[in-house]
Structures are given as C-alpha cells and as structure tokens.
Design a protein around this nucleic acid. Structure first.
Length: 138
DNA sequence: GCCGTGACGGTAA
DNA sequence: GTTACCGCCACGG
C-alpha cells in the first residue's frame, strides 16, 4: 500500500493504463510512463506491477494480478526481464496464451515479437495508428 | 531515519 | 552496431 496520496494516484494511473492494453498486444514500461504523464519514471511503472496485489489475497481489489494484464508490459528492448527464476516464464506463457509470439534467445532471454503483434515501443496509440495509416514507406 | 535496490530508459562514449 | 553510467522514486533492510 502506497505511503502518500500522490503515490496512490500514481499506482492507480499505472494500473488503469495497463488495463487499456488490448488483448494480444504488448507495450513497454516507458510507454505506460508516457500514458500516465510521467515519461521520466518508467522504472516506477515496474515498481507498481511488482506491488500488484495477488488476486487470491485481494479479490475485492479492482487492481490485482487477475484484473491487470501485467504480462503485457515488457521493456523497450522488446524482451522480458528475468526478474525471478520462473517469473519471466510465467509472463511468457501468459502472453503465448494470448497468441503473442515469443522467441527464446540463446541465453534464455525471452524476446517478444512486438513489431508484428504489438504496439511500437515508445509510441503512443495515436502515433501507432498514424503509422498504420502511413505504412507505404519501407 | 539513512542506504541500497529495482519488473527501465535515455544519452554518452 | 554495443557497453557504461546516470536519474528517477517507492520499498525493504
């Protein structure tokens, strides 16, 4: 639980932004940071997801790991950070279940094919739509 | 209450 | 093209 109201608003904004990610799509922490108006704090976005309450423990909480698609948030490199022994694989399987292609690198790194299935990293949804509209250049 | 850490990103070299 | 360093701020020890 956040210490100040400002932090609570920050958490709330981040969770809401993550919930706006469409099914089968992925985005980056920096993208979420931009959406909530704090592009200089992508790291705190990860902190919010880290403190995301467990659904079985807080089912009444509107923001828990069951209502917030935390697995759709990856880093700007398009890969999943190995934060834990099986945390990354759990995120990868959740994404694959949504139809997202994930490639396993030689060093066990999980790279998401965001160019094909998700938003462009560090790009707002409006800008992404603009790209699709003007995709004549190659 | 201070210090180090962290699910990251950007810029510099 | 890659590697290194800094900053941001809540949380845990």
């Amino acid at each position: 639980m956040p210490q100040s109201e400002e932090a609570a608003a920050w958490f709330h904004a981040v969770y809401t932004a993550v919930q706006e990610i469409p099914h089968g799509r992925v985005t980056s922490y920096g993208h979420i940071a931009r959406l909530v108006g704090r592009p200089e704090r992508p790291r705190q976005v990860g902190v919010c997801l880290k403190h995301l309450p467990d659904a079985s423990k807080q089912p009444n909480n509107p923001f828990n790991n069951n209502t917030v698609p935390w697995q759709r948030v990856i880093n700007s490199r398009g890969s999943i950070s190995p934060r834990g022994p099986n945390g990354a694989s759990r995120q990868a399987s959740a994404l694959r279940r949504e139809g997202v292609t994930i490639e396993t690198g030689t060093m066990g790194e999980l790279t998401v094919d965001f160019e094909m299935y998700g938003w462009f990293p560090e790009m707002l949804p409006s800008e992404a739509a603009e790209v699709e509209d003007d995709s004549d250049e190659d």
